[in-house]
């Protein structure tokens, strides 16, 4: 029982990170029908740039803020230079383009930051807090809190601001959005920036717990894709739920079966879900029109 509680705590922490990555995934997918395989690189770039600014003597909060800005800039560049010029590409071509982008970004990170593994200090004093026989680190709480605040902010943005609604309109029907005077190109650009910023946020939150290196983004990105699928591709809140669930299932599974198979468990779960319900947990089945 205590063990289960402990697993739940770590599961919820990892799940929060997956949720942020999946949310970023889902925002880009909604805006442009692109599955962005470079999503994990946003996480890596956010964390790595913060680490190196901190090393350069910039204060932690400022470094974190700048890291998010830098990563958002990378997101904008991705849209501007790789996605926008290829607007007639098929699904498979866009997949290859984003894979190319992820390799490119990894290559750039390797050049700038090298192969070493780095960490970030915890946000605050990190003495474990006891809950019964389980312990929780303050950084775990920061991850959950940071995710919750970010998710609600994103939800508020889409539900209540003019720009958020405009982006949603683009995702429903680009032509109609264009006709009512929405600058579709700019909305796509903003989606990529926002999505990248979410990735950077995830990177900042998770690095004090797990460490970071130039290629650590790959698996996080794939898990984000997993979570987005689990929640039903294109459903933002579904993606968040999918992320949290995936984190918990994976941690509990790994704890009781074998930690070496942790990633396998996540992918096994996603495959089973797809076999039973091909449109994800919260996705709607789509009927073909002929």
């Amino acid at each position: 029982m205590d063990q289960l509680l402990q697993f739940l705590i770590s599961g919820l922490t990892v799940g929060s990170i997956y949720a942020l990555v999946a949310l970023g995934f889902s925002i880009i997918y909604n805006a442009s029908d692109v599955v962005n395989f470079a999503q994990g690189e946003f996480v890596m770039i956010g964390a790595m740039s913060a680490i190196f600014m901190l090393k350069a003597g910039i204060s932690y909060p400022l470094a974190a803020f700048l890291a998010i800005v830098i990563t958002a800039g990378v997101g904008l560049a991705l849209d501007k230079f790789a996605i926008e010029p290829a607007k007639n590409a098929t699904v498979v071509s866009t997949i290859i383009i984003t894979i190319g982008a992820s390799i490119f970004l990894r290559g750039a990170a390797l050049l700038i930051w090298g192969k070493e593994i780095y960490g970030l200090p915890p946000f605050t004093n990190n003495d474990p807090i006891r809950i019964g026989n389980a312990t929780i680190l303050p950084q775990n709480l920061w991850v959950m809190l940071g995710t919750a605040v970010t998710v609600f902010a994103v939800k508020y943005f889409f539900d209540h601001t003019r720009m958020g609604k405009a982006i949603l309109a683009c995702s429903f029907n680009k032509k109609a959005a264009y006709l009512v005077g929405i600058n579709v190109k700019r909305m796509l650009l903003i989606s990529y920036g926002l999505s990248a910023a979410l990735g950077a946020m995830a990177g900042l939150l998770v690095t004090p717990i797990t460490f970071m290196s130039y290629n650590a983004g790959v698996m996080l990105g794939l898990k984000g894709f997993c979570a987005a699928i689990l929640g039903g591709m294109g459903n933002s809140m579904g993606a968040v739920l999918g992320g949290v669930l995936l984190g918990i299932v994976e941690t509990v599974g790994a704890g009781f079966i074998s930690s070496g198979y942790k990633d396998a468990i996540a992918f096994l779960v996603i495959m089973l879900v797809l076999f039973i319900k091909p449109s994800g947990l919260l996705g709607k089945g789509e009927a073909e029109r002929v």
């Binding site: 590409a89 290859i96 190319g100 982008a101 490119f104 290559g107 390797l110 050049l111």
Partner: peptide, 20 residues
């Protein structure tokens, strides 16, 4: 050398963007 990964990614993107 160190630019290998970067160039590989760039080539991939460029070909797919211009010759989908």
């Amino acid at each position: 050398e160190d630019f290998e990964v970067l160039i590989f990614g760039a080539i991939l993107m460029v070909i797919m963007i211009f010759l989908p």
